[in-house]
Amino acid sequence: MMPDLGKYAFAVLGSYGATALLLAGLVGFTLWQRARVKQALAEAEARLEKTDVR
């Protein structure tokens, strides 16, 4: 299944590995940022709701 990359294995696998890492890093960072902002917004909305009720 694995193609024979010969003497260029490092260049090819390195390129695919680095790309996978960079794309996964961007996705991971985005998901982390989304969760953080969503939670902070939910907390702020809950606090304001309490204040408004009082």
Binding site: G6, V12, Y16
Partner: peptide, 11 residues
């Protein structure tokens, strides 16, 4: 270019 041509699909 041998197998390095596969980098084309990323680069």
């Amino acid at each position: 270019q041998g197998s390095t041509v596969k980098i084309l699909f990323l680069h």
